[in-house]
Design a protein around this nucleic acid. Structure first.
Lengths: 175, 175
DNA sequence: TGACGCATGTAAAACGTTACATGATTTG
DNA sequence: CAAATCATGTAACGTTTTACATGCGTCA
């Protein structure tokens, strides 16, 4: 599920502009996926060429015209295939664990700081999920709710794990 | 911590060839980072040009000559700066959650299957960590051990989370 | 008046993988 | 006899971000 397929999936809900899609992307899927305009606009254009979407121009005064993209049957098929495809997870890269791996080389005070930076990152994600909650309760379908709950458990587990780590490292510093 | 910086970090342990570095990479950091030869060799060459490492040729019969790379003071500095740098987490992309988000569009039987595929992926990671254990107990420093324990807790939490999800979805299917 | 929201887009760069090529030696 | 290990490397490709460019309306 690269950005292209995810965009096709979002278009199942109905025609959207690139701008709209970015907002949907960042809000609904913000917890586990993201996309910049620099990828969205070229991808939509490419999808149109390939017949996965169709574009309709909505003329506007003052503002740039809106390009409203709508899924074709072919585009729908491409998405459904991707959705049903065997799950393959691309190699996971964890910035924090990579740092931790080399902590032996780092001065003592900076170690705790970096873990705290990680904790504040996690808290940021917890906060973002909390803000998302009303939207989930209103608009989300059953699986999107499960997605949300998975995310909440995930970040809370992560937080506890990081807290334990901090305790262990603080302990070492004082011995 | 891109591949380049991670390689520099691994070179702190002493001079290594690109081939050695790949093995260190895949075994020690395999749980949370990876690198292919297609990235390692060009990066080492570039690092030499930039004065971050120095290369010494070890002539061999039959086999290609070994290029042994050693960290320079400048390379050490570059790594230490990266290690100490403020922690920034690049946007997290979760293949599984992205799928789950669109599960409403998927036929019922395929849903459970994909979650089971995810579980078997997690089990694979748990297994890989288990295999790594002897090496950690022998060679790892204190922080690499913490790294390992973090990893173990992480995958176990993930597994439980996925199991709960499966239960919830199975429940729905039978109602 | 400056920032933000709306709305589009391009070009360059960064980062990385996959597939290919070479070729000897060892192991099953 | 085939496959894996050792050891290097290149070329093509894919994906995505960043930075830039445009320009109007609105809100503080």
């Amino acid at each position: 599920m690269n950005i292209r397929n995810t965009l096709l999936g979002l278009l199942l809900d109905g025609p959207q502009t690139g701008y709209d899609l970015k907002q949907m992307f960042d809000s609904s899927l913000g917890f586990f996926a993201g996309a910049s305009f620099g990828s969205i606009y070229p991808i939509l254009k490419r999808c149109e060429k390939q017949g996965l979407v169709e574009m309709e121009l909505e003329l506007q005064d003052g503002k740039p015209n809106r390009k409203i993209y709508q899924l074709t049957l072919e585009g729908r098929k491409v998405f459904m295939d991707a959705l049903s495809d065997e799950l393959t997870i691309s190699p996971y890269r964890n910035e924090f664990l990579t740092r931790l791996f080399f902590f032996g080389r780092l001065e003592g005070s900076r170690r705790e700081e970096i873990i705290r930076e990680y904790l504040s990152y996690i808290d940021g994600r917890i906060g973002a999920l909390a803000e998302l909650r009303p939207m989930v309760e209103e608009n989300a379908d059953a699986y999107q709710s499960l997605c949300y709950r998975f995310g909440v458990r995930y970040v809370n587990d992560l937080r506890e794990n990081a807290r334990m780590l901090l305790t262990e490292i603080e302990g070492e510093g004082k011995e």
